[in-house]
Design a protein around this nucleic acid. Structure first.
Lengths: 131, 131
DNA sequence: TCTATTGTAATAGGTATATTAGTACAATTA
DNA sequence: TAATTGTACTAATATACCTATTACAATAGA
Protein backbone atom coordinates (compact mmCIF):
# COMPACT_ATOMS: atom_id res chain seq x y z
CA UNK A 1 0.00 0.00 0.00
CA UNK A 2 1.90 2.98 -1.30
CA UNK A 3 -0.74 5.65 -0.95
CA UNK A 4 -1.91 6.67 2.47
CA UNK A 5 -4.02 9.68 3.30
CA UNK A 6 -3.85 11.58 6.56
CA UNK A 7 -7.17 13.26 7.11
CA UNK A 8 -5.69 15.33 9.91
CA UNK A 9 -3.17 16.76 7.50
CA UNK A 10 -4.33 20.07 6.15
CA UNK A 11 -2.48 19.42 2.92
CA UNK A 12 -4.79 18.67 -0.01
CA UNK A 13 -5.41 14.98 -0.57
CA UNK A 14 -4.10 14.97 -4.11
CA UNK A 15 -0.81 16.54 -2.98
CA UNK A 16 -0.48 13.96 -0.23
CA UNK A 17 -0.83 11.33 -2.91
CA UNK A 18 1.84 13.05 -4.97
CA UNK A 19 4.17 13.03 -2.00
CA UNK A 20 3.49 9.37 -1.36
CA UNK A 21 4.61 8.43 -4.84
CA UNK A 22 7.59 10.75 -4.70
CA UNK A 23 8.61 9.12 -1.44
CA UNK A 24 8.15 5.68 -2.89
CA UNK A 25 10.39 6.56 -5.82
CA UNK A 26 12.96 8.21 -3.58
CA UNK A 27 13.20 5.17 -1.34
CA UNK A 28 13.26 2.76 -4.24
CA UNK A 29 9.94 1.16 -3.35
CA UNK A 30 8.97 2.19 -6.85
CA UNK A 31 11.48 1.84 -9.65
CA UNK A 32 11.60 3.00 -13.23
CA UNK A 33 9.06 1.13 -15.29
CA UNK A 34 7.03 -0.04 -12.33
CA UNK A 35 3.29 0.27 -12.72
CA UNK A 36 1.39 2.38 -10.27
CA UNK A 37 -1.95 1.22 -8.95
CA UNK A 38 -4.61 1.96 -11.53
CA UNK A 39 -6.60 5.09 -10.86
CA UNK A 40 -9.65 3.08 -9.96
CA UNK A 41 -7.67 0.74 -7.71
CA UNK A 42 -5.89 3.54 -5.95
CA UNK A 43 -9.16 5.37 -5.43
CA UNK A 44 -10.66 2.37 -3.69
CA UNK A 45 -7.58 1.71 -1.58
CA UNK A 46 -7.14 5.31 -0.53
CA UNK A 47 -10.89 5.71 -0.17
CA UNK A 48 -11.07 8.83 -2.26
CA UNK A 49 -12.74 9.71 -5.50
CA UNK A 50 -11.24 8.69 -8.80
CA UNK A 51 -10.88 12.33 -9.76
CA UNK A 52 -8.61 12.95 -6.82
CA UNK A 53 -6.24 10.17 -7.84
CA UNK A 54 -6.49 11.32 -11.41
CA UNK A 55 -5.45 14.80 -10.43
CA UNK A 56 -2.55 13.51 -8.40
CA UNK A 57 -1.33 11.35 -11.28
CA UNK A 58 -1.66 14.30 -13.62
CA UNK A 59 0.46 16.34 -11.24
CA UNK A 60 3.05 13.57 -11.15
CA UNK A 61 3.07 13.46 -14.92
CA UNK A 62 3.72 17.19 -15.01
CA UNK A 63 6.59 16.59 -12.62
CA UNK A 64 7.94 14.09 -15.10
CA UNK A 65 7.77 11.33 -12.52
CA UNK A 66 5.26 9.07 -14.22
CA UNK A 67 3.71 8.46 -17.58
CA UNK A 68 0.07 7.47 -18.02
CA UNK A 69 -1.22 5.67 -21.06
CA UNK A 70 -4.90 5.18 -21.75
CA UNK A 71 -5.85 1.54 -21.50
CA UNK A 72 -2.45 0.54 -20.22
CA UNK A 73 -1.87 2.22 -16.88
CA UNK A 74 0.54 4.59 -15.20
CA UNK A 75 4.24 3.86 -14.97
CA UNK A 76 7.26 5.35 -13.29
CA UNK A 77 9.46 7.28 -15.69
CA UNK A 78 13.21 7.23 -15.74
CA UNK A 79 13.44 10.90 -16.55
CA UNK A 80 13.89 12.89 -13.39
CA UNK A 81 12.56 16.38 -12.85
CA UNK A 82 13.83 18.71 -15.53
CA UNK A 83 14.27 21.89 -13.52
CA UNK A 84 17.55 23.71 -13.63
CA UNK A 85 19.72 23.53 -10.58
CA UNK A 86 19.17 27.24 -10.06
CA UNK A 87 15.42 26.73 -10.04
CA UNK A 88 15.62 23.82 -7.64
CA UNK A 89 17.64 25.75 -5.12
CA UNK A 90 15.26 28.67 -5.31
CA UNK A 91 12.36 26.33 -4.69
CA UNK A 92 14.14 24.95 -1.65
CA UNK A 93 14.89 28.36 -0.20
CA UNK A 94 11.28 28.96 0.79
CA UNK A 95 11.10 25.71 2.69
CA UNK A 96 14.47 26.30 4.30
CA UNK A 97 13.50 29.78 5.46
CA UNK A 98 10.30 28.48 6.91
CA UNK A 99 12.12 25.77 8.79
CA UNK A 100 14.69 28.25 10.05
CA UNK A 101 11.96 30.51 11.36
CA UNK A 102 10.34 27.70 13.29
CA UNK A 103 13.68 26.59 14.62
CA UNK A 104 14.63 30.00 15.96
CA UNK A 105 11.14 30.77 17.15
CA UNK A 106 10.90 27.65 19.25
CA UNK A 107 14.51 27.95 20.32
CA UNK A 108 15.45 24.52 19.17
CA UNK A 109 19.17 24.10 18.54
CA UNK A 110 19.93 24.28 14.84
CA UNK A 111 22.10 21.21 15.18
CA UNK A 112 19.12 19.24 16.41
CA UNK A 113 17.15 20.17 13.36
CA UNK A 114 20.08 19.33 11.14
CA UNK A 115 20.25 15.91 12.74
CA UNK A 116 16.56 15.43 12.06
CA UNK A 117 17.07 16.49 8.48
CA UNK A 118 19.98 14.10 7.98
CA UNK A 119 17.97 11.24 9.38
CA UNK A 120 14.92 12.02 7.31
CA UNK A 121 16.98 12.28 4.14
CA UNK A 122 18.81 9.07 4.96
CA UNK A 123 15.51 7.23 5.37
CA UNK A 124 14.51 8.28 1.91
CA UNK A 125 17.78 7.57 0.18
CA UNK A 126 18.76 4.22 1.58
CA UNK A 127 15.93 1.76 1.68
CA UNK A 128 16.36 0.55 -1.87
CA UNK A 129 17.43 -2.91 -0.67
CA UNK A 130 14.21 -4.59 0.27
CA UNK A 131 11.67 -5.21 -2.43
CA UNK B 1 7.76 48.68 7.26
CA UNK B 2 7.57 45.35 9.00
CA UNK B 3 4.77 43.76 7.08
CA UNK B 4 5.20 42.91 3.45
CA UNK B 5 2.94 40.76 1.34
CA UNK B 6 4.10 38.68 -1.57
CA UNK B 7 1.20 38.21 -3.94
CA UNK B 8 3.10 35.53 -5.80
CA UNK B 9 3.36 33.51 -2.62
CA UNK B 10 0.58 30.98 -2.44
CA UNK B 11 0.61 31.19 1.33
CA UNK B 12 -2.46 32.95 2.75
CA UNK B 13 -1.96 36.66 3.33
CA UNK B 14 -2.75 36.51 7.01
CA UNK B 15 -0.12 33.81 7.55
CA UNK B 16 2.43 35.86 5.67
CA UNK B 17 1.70 38.67 8.07
CA UNK B 18 2.13 36.32 10.99
CA UNK B 19 5.50 35.25 9.65
CA UNK B 20 6.58 38.85 9.15
CA UNK B 21 5.98 39.62 12.79
CA UNK B 22 7.59 36.41 13.94
CA UNK B 23 10.63 37.24 11.85
CA UNK B 24 10.75 40.75 13.23
CA UNK B 25 10.67 39.39 16.76
CA UNK B 26 13.26 36.74 15.97
CA UNK B 27 15.68 39.27 14.52
CA UNK B 28 15.08 41.77 17.28
CA UNK B 29 13.49 44.36 15.02
CA UNK B 30 10.58 44.07 17.40
CA UNK B 31 11.25 43.76 21.10
CA UNK B 32 9.09 42.97 24.10
CA UNK B 33 6.71 45.81 24.77
CA UNK B 34 7.02 47.34 21.32
CA UNK B 35 3.81 48.42 19.73
CA UNK B 36 2.81 46.91 16.44
CA UNK B 37 1.25 49.03 13.74
CA UNK B 38 -2.42 49.49 14.50
CA UNK B 39 -4.71 47.23 12.59
CA UNK B 40 -5.95 50.12 10.49
CA UNK B 41 -2.44 51.40 9.83
CA UNK B 42 -1.10 48.00 8.92
CA UNK B 43 -4.05 47.40 6.63
CA UNK B 44 -3.30 50.56 4.69
CA UNK B 45 0.42 49.91 4.52
CA UNK B 46 0.06 46.30 3.47
CA UNK B 47 -2.85 47.20 1.19
CA UNK B 48 -5.12 44.56 2.58
CA UNK B 49 -8.40 44.61 4.39
CA UNK B 50 -8.56 45.33 8.09
CA UNK B 51 -10.03 41.91 8.67
CA UNK B 52 -6.97 40.25 7.26
CA UNK B 53 -4.66 42.11 9.63
CA UNK B 54 -7.09 41.44 12.42
CA UNK B 55 -6.98 37.75 11.72
CA UNK B 56 -3.20 37.74 11.62
CA UNK B 57 -2.97 39.58 14.94
CA UNK B 58 -5.45 37.17 16.45
CA UNK B 59 -3.28 34.31 15.28
CA UNK B 60 -0.24 35.96 16.81
CA UNK B 61 -2.10 36.39 20.06
CA UNK B 62 -2.95 32.72 20.08
CA UNK B 63 0.74 32.05 19.55
CA UNK B 64 1.40 34.12 22.64
CA UNK B 65 3.55 36.51 20.66
CA UNK B 66 1.49 39.67 21.08
CA UNK B 67 -1.25 41.08 23.22
CA UNK B 68 -3.95 43.35 21.83
CA UNK B 69 -5.89 45.77 23.97
CA UNK B 70 -8.96 47.56 22.73
CA UNK B 71 -8.33 51.28 22.42
CA UNK B 72 -4.65 50.89 23.17
CA UNK B 73 -3.08 48.83 20.42
CA UNK B 74 -1.15 45.60 19.96
CA UNK B 75 2.12 44.94 21.74
CA UNK B 76 4.84 42.34 21.68
CA UNK B 77 4.65 40.00 24.64
CA UNK B 78 7.61 38.71 26.60
CA UNK B 79 6.10 35.28 27.02
CA UNK B 80 7.34 33.00 24.32
CA UNK B 81 5.32 30.18 22.83
CA UNK B 82 4.12 27.82 25.52
CA UNK B 83 4.34 24.54 23.69
CA UNK B 84 6.17 21.66 25.24
CA UNK B 85 9.48 20.70 23.72
CA UNK B 86 7.95 17.44 22.61
CA UNK B 87 5.22 19.30 20.77
CA UNK B 88 7.63 21.66 19.10
CA UNK B 89 9.77 18.90 17.75
CA UNK B 90 6.75 17.10 16.42
CA UNK B 91 5.65 20.27 14.67
CA UNK B 92 9.06 20.58 13.09
CA UNK B 93 9.14 16.99 11.88
CA UNK B 94 6.61 17.63 9.15
CA UNK B 95 8.61 20.52 7.76
CA UNK B 96 11.84 18.59 8.02
CA UNK B 97 10.39 15.61 6.17
CA UNK B 98 9.08 17.82 3.46
CA UNK B 99 12.44 19.47 3.03
CA UNK B 100 14.19 16.12 3.00
CA UNK B 101 11.88 14.87 0.29
CA UNK B 102 12.60 17.87 -1.92
CA UNK B 103 16.30 17.55 -1.25
CA UNK B 104 16.49 13.92 -2.25
CA UNK B 105 14.08 14.32 -5.11
CA UNK B 106 16.07 17.09 -6.73
CA UNK B 107 19.32 15.39 -5.86
CA UNK B 108 20.71 18.35 -4.05
CA UNK B 109 23.50 17.46 -1.60
CA UNK B 110 22.16 17.39 1.94
CA UNK B 111 25.15 19.41 3.05
CA UNK B 112 24.16 22.20 0.70
CA UNK B 113 20.73 22.36 2.24
CA UNK B 114 22.23 22.31 5.71
CA UNK B 115 24.42 25.25 4.77
CA UNK B 116 21.35 27.10 3.55
CA UNK B 117 19.56 26.31 6.77
CA UNK B 118 22.46 27.50 8.90
CA UNK B 119 22.63 30.75 7.00
CA UNK B 120 18.91 31.34 7.15
CA UNK B 121 18.82 30.68 10.88
CA UNK B 122 21.84 32.92 11.44
CA UNK B 123 20.16 35.76 9.61
CA UNK B 124 17.23 35.52 11.96
CA UNK B 125 19.15 35.19 15.17
CA UNK B 126 21.83 37.80 14.80
CA UNK B 127 20.53 41.10 13.53
CA UNK B 128 19.61 42.50 16.93
CA UNK B 129 22.47 45.01 16.80
CA UNK B 130 21.28 47.73 14.50
CA UNK B 131 18.63 50.25 15.53
C1' DT C 1 -16.12 64.63 30.48
C1' DC C 2 -15.65 64.63 25.56
C1' DT C 3 -13.53 62.86 21.57
C1' DA C 4 -10.56 60.42 18.71
C1' DT C 5 -8.27 56.14 18.46
C1' DT C 6 -8.10 51.26 18.71
C1' DG C 7 -9.45 46.53 18.89
C1' DT C 8 -13.55 43.56 18.32
C1' DA C 9 -17.63 41.59 16.30
C1' DA C 10 -20.84 40.46 12.87
C1' DT C 11 -22.74 40.05 8.36
C1' DA C 12 -22.57 39.58 3.53
C1' DG C 13 -20.48 38.69 -0.93
C1' DG C 14 -16.98 37.09 -4.07
C1' DT C 15 -13.42 34.11 -5.54
C1' DA C 16 -10.75 30.14 -5.62
C1' DT C 17 -9.69 25.43 -4.37
C1' DA C 18 -10.70 20.78 -3.15
C1' DT C 19 -13.49 16.83 -3.29
C1' DT C 20 -17.21 13.98 -4.57
C1' DA C 21 -20.56 12.10 -7.88
C1' DG C 22 -21.87 10.54 -12.12
C1' DT C 23 -21.57 9.76 -17.03
C1' DA C 24 -19.38 9.10 -21.22
C1' DC C 25 -15.63 8.30 -24.30
C1' DA C 26 -11.03 6.64 -26.21
C1' DA C 27 -7.03 3.88 -26.31
C1' DT C 28 -4.95 -0.34 -25.03
C1' DT C 29 -4.78 -5.16 -23.80
C1' DA C 30 -5.98 -9.90 -23.93
C1' DT D 1 -14.77 -8.44 -29.34
C1' DA D 2 -14.79 -7.32 -24.48
C1' DA D 3 -12.73 -5.85 -20.33
C1' DT D 4 -9.56 -2.63 -18.54
C1' DT D 5 -7.63 1.86 -18.14
C1' DG D 6 -6.88 6.70 -18.61
C1' DT D 7 -9.35 10.91 -19.94
C1' DA D 8 -12.93 14.44 -20.20
C1' DC D 9 -16.79 16.77 -18.74
C1' DT D 10 -20.50 18.72 -15.91
C1' DA D 11 -22.66 19.48 -11.59
C1' DA D 12 -22.91 19.95 -6.70
C1' DT D 13 -20.99 20.77 -2.21
C1' DA D 14 -17.93 22.34 1.18
C1' DT D 15 -14.32 25.10 2.79
C1' DA D 16 -10.85 28.78 3.01
C1' DC D 17 -9.54 33.29 2.09
C1' DC D 18 -10.27 38.03 1.35
C1' DT D 19 -12.93 42.13 0.91
C1' DA D 20 -16.54 45.49 2.19
C1' DT D 21 -19.25 47.59 5.47
C1' DT D 22 -21.22 48.73 9.74
C1' DA D 23 -21.43 48.95 14.48
C1' DC D 24 -19.79 48.65 19.09
C1' DA D 25 -16.60 48.74 23.30
C1' DA D 26 -12.54 49.91 25.70
C1' DT D 27 -8.74 52.93 26.10
C1' DA D 28 -6.05 57.22 25.84
C1' DG D 29 -5.55 61.95 25.77
C1' DA D 30 -7.09 66.79 25.66
Amino acid sequence: MIITIDLNNNKPTYLQIVDCVRRAVATGALKTGDQLPTIREAAVQARVNRNTISRAYLELEHLGMIRSRQGAGSFVTDAGPDLEHEERVKALQTLVDELALETVHYQIPVDDVIAMLRESAAKLGKESDHD
